[in-house]
Design a protein around this nucleic acid. Structure first.
Lengths: 209, 209
DNA sequence: CCATTTAGATACACGATTGTATCTAAATGA
DNA sequence: TCATTTAGATACAATCGTGTATCTAAATGG
């Protein structure tokens, strides 16, 4: 065996080795995607051999799920408590986006079947497939605006799970952490106004106590 | 060759054959996903052989993209014009969801690397990976509700691209056409209120003429 | 320090898929 | 009808990943 590269002939065991394997699996997963992940590549990346992996996880699914859990256990997100909903949302969306962008990449790592091989993102694929610009919503909204039903400049491009659904959507589409502008839009121009609206006109719910 | 099954010994050519190949590719794509699609399976499904495919598309990517284009050219969505934004939205969301659910399935067909092999949907995967229920948004919103900042019952689970982003998100998560309840929620409890809000309080934009 | 465990290397047979080459016979056009 | 095209069958080598078996030597625990 070659001893020059890194650790001087040290042979890992137990948890340390396991962590290295799962890290390698995670990396392979984000790069190649689930269906592109091979035991071989994981073993090589972890500087070991296939049998070492097979002894722990005999199926790809279990290996991958273990790798994902391991990755997230490694850096848990602590939910912010700023004292206000707005502050919590800003903080959590920023945090979740930065820390979980790889989750979207991972989820898309499944998508990666197509995308990793071709270098396409989901958004790019949509563009390539749908043509350039004029899509349904644009047409309808333009029409609506022409009828005076809506002012597109007054309605930003972007309520309970809304911010998270939209963030997840954004992450899936771009494979990048969302921008500050995105968060501001979602929180201050969508979520909070909707909250206000529904608190003003919502059904007269009374707490059950 | 076997002549009993269907068409009596007729040998397809040109456009007819090409359409059959692309249909077969589409079907394989939705069933197996991009990375699970093989020239072999496509050929077999089209009742022909691999060389016939290779003569037209030598790469998987070009075959798949051609298949997707062919599929959507076959049944284009005509944008509804009901006379009102609300009506247009209801109609278009319904139509797009029904007709493009397979698009999400297709997009997820990429996701299918993991999901087709394991029978998981993206939503199921999220559940399995995140645990049972108590996630960020729930915690924060519960907190906010406890502070009286928000009434969860008054704010439904669900602005310009909002309905479509949310529908796309929904399709990706469930792999099913969205429900009428989903459309109603998005349109009447999210999008339209936001439109109203932003038209009332939006920036005083003046048409540039 | 010896016994036990187990990491890591290597090798193997197997199956699936690829891309091409070759041959035939069916469709088409002049 | 005859020449040209090309669909479709078949076969092939080559590659890649799988899953297992086997051997060695390093780590660990008593």
């Amino acid at each position: 065996m070659d001893l020059e590269a890194d650790g001087p002939s040290t042979r890992r065991r137990g948890p340390e080795l396991e962590a290295a394997l799962l890290d390698a699996a995670w990396d392979e997963l984000t790069e190649k995607g689930y269906s592109g992940l091979t035991f071989d590549a994981v073993a090589e990346r972890a500087h070991t051999s296939r049998p070492v992996i097979y002894r722990r996880w005999s199926e790809r699914e279990s290996l991958v799920l273990a790798a994902i859990r391991h990755h997230y256990d490694a850096e848990p997100i602590d939910i912010p408590d700023t004292g206000s909903l707005r502050g919590d949302l800003y903080a959590l969306l920023r945090l979740a986006s930065d820390r979980r962008a790889d989750m979207a990449v991972m989820i898309s790592a499944q998508l990666a079947g197509l995308f990793s091989e071709t270098g396409m993102s989901l958004g790019t694929a949509r563009e390539r497939l749908l043509g350039q610009g004029t899509i349904w919503d644009t047409v309808i909204l333009t029409r609506a605006q022409e009828r005076g039903e809506i002012d597109l400049d007054a309605v930003p491009a972007r309520v309970q799970s809304l911010p998270f659904d939209l963030m997840r959507h954004e992450l899936l589409m771009t494979h990048e952490p969302v921008s500050d502008e995105f968060i501001a839009t979602v929180v201050d121009e969508m979520f909070l106004p909707l909250v206000a609206h529904h608190m003003d006109y919502g059904n007269g719910v009374v707490p059950p106590d």
